[in-house]
Structure formats: structure tokens, C-alpha cells
Design a protein around this nucleic acid. Structure first.
Lengths: 151, 151
DNA sequence: CTACAATATTTGTATATACAAATAAAAAAG
DNA sequence: CTTTTTTATTTGTATATACAAATATTGTAG
């Protein structure tokens, strides 16, 4: 469906408006679908993002600011996200001995197990959701989004 | 910057993952920039969205469910969004006389004035933010996003 | 060494979002 | 006409987000 129809617009939309609404709307749909996968695991999208970052550290701890700068939504409150993951015993948190301002966050085995369980579901979902476009179109979309973002 | 660099990914990302992250990330950047424009007017993006829908009604009232189905983020809580707009006297709210389950929401002159004040700023911003792509590329991006969304 | 600046994180507060349950009115069924 | 179902909206609750202020530690300048 065209974006004008998705939001049942009663007024004409110029191309810049359409693009912006289209990106906003598409992201909302994507998040919604992704949250459905995460729901049985009692994880929010942001919490999942933190776990993925921690796994990517391959055993090395990550500071709060490292997590923050790697997040898709960089304005998220990392402290409170880590709090929630700590309660579920998916991560550990310790003061860094070399610099006591910093915090070392590590993913636990339980956290890794949850991600391992999610991996095939997430991958399948990503394959399905991108299946409407061929490789060439996907590469083009990727390229256009990056060009769009960069000044 | 490429999406892998924006999120400082330590692991390789396949094309479906890249596309999805790219859309999510681009939307966050867009929202952030748009919120800067709205901030002096003490409006959230969702509140602005509701005002735009109401103006599009051209004098006719809109029910809560009409607003909901026209919103970009359809999961927003329309009642509480309208509450906030009511407090700022940007809308009025009345029970529909023909069907007392329904609510008639109308934009006030003050609401129209705020939108009129915002219009040039929003349009300029949209022009600037889409200026990196030519018309052809914008149309292609639009087309690819719609194809991506639709099964 | 002390004062000041910079860095890293946490906390407070207001608002927003997600989702289920509650309420209320209208429509349909019996 | 009463009961049940459907429709429209509101409310409760937990979590999330935005943003400013507070706290704590380290680094730097004099």
C-alpha cells in the first residue's frame, strides 16, 4: 500500500514529505513485528540491542558509553536498560578497577543462551521481511538510505 | 556514514540485517531532528501528527478512531494525546450527539495558528533533509520502501 | 597539592508507549 | 423488551524515553 493510503491522507503530499513519512511508518511496522518475536522472551527491542552489543564484545566487558554509542537508538537510557537485564540475570555489572568512573557490563551464559535461542527466529524473520526485494533492490535501498542520511 | 559504522558493529552484517538496521537508525535520526523543530512549540511528534490530521479534516470533527487510523504510529494513545492538546487549547473535544460513544475532536484557531507558524519551518526542513537525493532517487527510495513493506 | 575542568554514570521528573482491563453506548439476537 | 455482542473510548500499570541535574572520579593547570 502507498504511504498516502496507509495514513489515509486527505491532503496531497509532496515527495520530501512522502519519503519522510514512509521511513517513519516503515520503521514502526518493523518494530512492531520485531517486538512480537521478542515478547515471549520478555525483552524490549532496546534490551535486545544491548545484549547483541555485549555478545559482539566476545568476552570483553563494555562500558556504558560504549554500549550507548553502539545502540541504534542512542538516546536510550543505558543505565536503566542494564538494570532490567541485570534483574533477569542476563548481564553482570561491575565497577572498572582501572577507572572507577566506568562500569564493566558483561553478558552472562544465560544471556548468551537467550540470544542463541532467538538467533534462528530473528534470522528467519529478517529473511522473510526482506524477501519482497531482490539482492539488487536491497543494495539500492541500503545505498539510498545512507545517501539520504549523510550530508 | 555506512550503517555498520554508525553502530560501530564488531560483527559482519548480512544484507537483510543491514537494511533493517538502516531503516530503524534513519528513522531515529529523522525523529530527533524533527523534535528539535517542535521543541520551541512544546509539541511532541505525535501531538503534531494529531494536529495535522485535524487540520486535514477541513472543519469536520474527527473521532478518536479516525485519528488513530491516520496516525503514523497507530499504537499511540490517542485519548492522552488529545488530553495534552486540550490543555494547551489547541483542540476541542465533545461527545458526538448522534452516537454518544464517539468523541468529536476539532482543531481550534490557536491550533491552526501554531501549525501555520510551523509550516514554513517544517517544509524547509523537509527540503533540506531530502536535498542529498535528486527527484529520481527520492522516487526510487519511496518505491523501494513501499515494495519492502508490502507482502 | 588544590582548584577547576572533563568524563562516566546515575537519578529525577515529566511525558510517552504498550497492552490489558474497564466503562459506556449502540446494535443485534432471541 | 431483555440479553448479548459489538463498537468507541478511557483508565491502570509497567516500562520506556527525553532531558536536565546530580554525583563521583579522574585529569590538568597553576
Amino acid at each position: 500500500m502507498k504511504i498516502e493510503d496507509e495514513i489515509k491522507s486527505t491532503v496531497a503530499l509532496d515527495l520530501p514529505k512522502k519519503i519522510i513519512l514512509n521511513i517513519m511508518y516503515t520503521q514502526h511496522i518493523l518494530s512492531e513485528k520485531f517486538n512480537e518475536i521478542l515478547k515471549p522472551y520478555d525483552l524490549s527491542g532496546e534490551q535486545y540491542n544491548v545484549l547483541r552489543i555485549l555478545r559482539g564484545q566476545k568476552g570483553n566487558p563494555a562500558n556504558m558509553c560504549v554500549i550507548q554509542e553502539r545502540m541504534v537508538a542512542k538516546t536510550s537510557n543505558t543505565t536503566r536498560l542494564v538494570d532490567k537485564l541485570l534483574l533477569k540475570e542476563l548481564v553482570t555489572r561491575n565497577v572498572c578497577p582501572e577507572n572507577r568512573r566506568k562500569i564493566e557490563v558483561l553478558i552472562t551464559q544465560k544471556g548468551l543462551d537467550v540470544l542463541a535461542d532467538l538467533d534462528p527466529k530473528v534470522n528467519d524473520h529478517e529473511k522473510v521481511i526482506t524477501a519482497k526485494l531482490d539482492t539488487n533492490e536491497l543494495e539500492q535501498l541500503n545505498h539510498l538510505l545512507e545517501k539520504f542520511r549523510n550530508q
